[in-house]
Amino acid sequence: MEAAMGLMRRMPPKHIETALSALLSLLPQHSSDLLSQVDQPLQVLCDVDSGKEFILCEYNRDADSYRSPWSNKYHPPLEDGSLPSPDLRKLEIEANDVFTIYRDQYYEGGISSVYMWEDDNEGFVACFLIKKDGSKMGHGRRGYLQEGAWDAIHVIEVGPVEEGTAHYRLTSTVMLSLTTNNDASGMFNLSGSIRREMNMDLPIQEGHLCNMGRMIEEMEGKLRNSLDQVYFGKTKEMVCTLRPPSEVVMRLPET
């Protein structure tokens, strides 16, 4: 299992799905571990009641059905599907509403879903999901991308409130792929994923949603920045190592 995870960490991102299905057939005894630990592109369903789309993940799944955050109903219908408590559902509804606006302001499109459930130690867990198709066929405002996908998964474990403070543990994953294609420069694709964790103890007078939202906003900013500055930068560095830009080559004979 450790070797399998090591392999998946090093696998080129666009082969993740193929590699995962290969590992599943090699290690059927670890299939649930593999499926829960390897991040895959997010899938979407349409809520029949509200007509809105919602995102599928392990956290809104029960048997083979997925709960919509809009209607609180399972798709396909499932009797006795587990539901959050009424109080938590109230927070979930509010989180979905506010997160929709947050998503619109940062993503100018896309789909978001928030799921919450009680955990075993008097706290709760919330999962914030965003899926954006940034291609010119999708929600790409500027039309630069032939293909563009951003999937963000934020899972926050919220501890019990003690003396007006709660502990928040956020684990965020972003998977992305972007492709530009034109006659002058051909096909150019960058894809990948990163995952980071953030822990904070915060006073709750402004509410859980406010705390969770700020953490997610900060984290998304950091992840976007790392991808842009570090990860894309490293692949560019590699290209320039393979074939240094001409100025560098000109300097070589002198040294």
Binding site: Y107, H139, R141, Y144, G148, W150, L227, F232
Partner: peptide, 25 residues
Amino acid sequence: LASLEASYSNLPDTTFKDLRRKLPV
């Protein structure tokens, strides 16, 4: 090579923005 470098330098402010903006609208 120059066009690859151009693709990279277009990322932060144009291409990547269609996925997620740095700041909200």
